[in-house]
């Protein structure tokens, strides 16, 4: 029965990543290496490993942080982090090692170099441009109807705040009913 479905999956348009899926599945169910390696008293703790893994992504389970990914590949990666920590590597060195091995995609953010600068530069520029357009727009609108508001303001200021508020509120409620 299972063979039949492997067949359909491989050949149908669905093209599920069968090989990956199958391996993820098997792997996740087999208790991983973590248990075996806790014996060394000076070994890095799970928390130290997770602190680094939290900010990394394994290509096998895209968009799931390494510290919570359940696949065998990810378990191996965590074991590797542990090993490197044990050898006295720093967090940056470990991350660099993973980048060299598996590419920049393992990092939670693109490294700040080359084309990747665009990621960081475009949103602020776009926001500032938007703010500028808005500012210009509001300015040009204000030119059309000047003074109008400023004339009324002082007279209202003198009045009792509550009454002013009630008047405004009633006015708005009345308008909203129209």
């Amino acid at each position: 029965m299972k063979r039949f479905f492997q067949f359909t999956l491989d050949n149908s348009h669905l093209t599920i990543r069968l090989a990956l899926l199958v391996s993820i599945v098997f792997a996740a169910f087999v208790p991983s290496l973590v248990l075996a390696q806790d014996t060394d008293p000076i070994a890095p703790t799970d928390n130290e490993v997770n602190a680094i893994a939290k900010e990394m992504y394994c290509p096998v389970c895209e968009n799931v942080p390494l510290d919570v990914c359940g696949t065998q590949a990810c378990a191996q990666w965590r074991a590797l982090i542990r090993e490197k920590l044990n050898e006295g590597w720093t967090e940056d060195e470990i991350k660099q090692y993973f980048v060299d091995q598996y590419g920049a995609r393992v990092l939670a953010e693109p490294p700040r170099q080359g084309l990747n600068w665009l990621v960081y530069v475009v949103p602020p520029i776009a926001f500032l441009a938007g703010a500028y357009i808005l500012f210009r727009g509001v300015q040009s609108w204000r030119q059309i109807e000047p003074d109008d508001a400023d004339v009324e303001e002082p007279t209202q200021d003198v009045e009792k705040p509550t009454d002013d508020y009630v008047a405004r509120l009633e006015e708005e409620l009345r308008r909203s009913e129209q």
């Binding site: 090989a19 391996s23 060299d100 091995q101 590419g103 920049a104």
Partner: peptide
């Protein structure tokens, strides 16, 4: 290294 070869062959899995 850098998953370069697998990306250039556009593999879907192993």
């Amino acid at each position: 290294l850098g998953t370069r070869i697998s990306q250039s062959f556009r593999i879907r899995g192993v």
